[in-house]
């Protein structure tokens, strides 16, 4: 296996395999987001008071952001799935009320974004792709989320409204938001050792 060392002493990514620092960064981002995800629960509960299930679906997208952000920075296969799953594991460790089923939730909520990035071979991270990843992640997670919340007992027309709100929420909170956050972080220069940083320096 040939690999060269970059200026920071760490081994360059060889092909599409993970280095220790990639796994660690995904995990640290996931833990931070697991913590933020728990803080988001009161927001979600309050949203029900304001706009019933519509309000809740409008803020739901935030719970899909960790996977998209992890993939946006690391740009390797499996990053979105791992990022979202580990965020769920962190939530369980922090004592989330939803408990162990969150692990399934994490997997399900990571699949959609992973699919979109995978179709683009983990090379295309333009705004359109990232927004699409957020929206598709929101759609793919619907059967499991709505089954657990008991939404399928709701009126079909009402469900259609919920679907549209959810797609928009995914596109914004799990698409535009992670991209803005990733770009702001890359602008500080700390991500120069990761693929997002390299993409930036090539652009310059």
């Amino acid at each position: 296996m040939s690999s060269r060392r970059d200026d920071r002493g760490s081994i360059e990514p060889h092909g599409q395999s993970w280095r220790t620092r990639d796994a660690l960064l995904i995990a640290v981002l996931a833990v931070v987001f697991g913590f933020l995800y728990l803080q988001w629960l009161p927001v979600w509960l309050a949203a029900r008071g304001l706009g019933a299930q519509i309000g809740q679906e409008a803020v739901f997208g935030f719970w899909l952001a960790a996977g998209v952000l992890a993939s946006y920075i690391v740009r390797l296969p499996g990053a979105a799935l791992a990022g979202e799953s580990l965020a769920a594991l962190a939530e369980v460790l922090f004592g989330a009320a939803a408990g162990a089923p969150l692990l399934i939730t994490g997997l399900v909520q990571g699949i959609g974004a992973e699919l979109v990035f995978g179709i683009r071979r983990w090379r295309d991270y333009s705004l359109v792709t990232v927004v699409l990843a957020g929206a598709i992640a929101a759609v793919v997670a619907i059967p499991w989320n709505w089954f657990r919340l008991g939404y399928f007992a709701l009126d079909p027309t009402f469900l259609l409204v919920l679907f549209i709100v959810r797609v928009l929420s995914g596109a914004l909170l799990a698409g535009v938001f992670p991209k803005l956050l990733g770009d702001a972080l890359a602008a500080t220069g700390v991500l120069s050792g990761y693929r997002i940083g390299r993409a930036r320096s090539e652009a310059i």
Binding site: T20, R21, L24, L25, L29, L181, A184, T188
Partner: peptide, 27 residues
């Protein structure tokens, strides 16, 4: 936003040091 970016940037730096330490021990 003003808080999140410096904190996350600090976290990335810690992560890099941690990864280096783990690699050097053959993790």
């Amino acid at each position: 936003r003003r808080l999140l970016i410096p904190v996350l940037a600090g976290a990335v730096r810690r992560t890099d040091r941690l990864a280096l330490a783990m690699d050097s021990r053959g993790f």
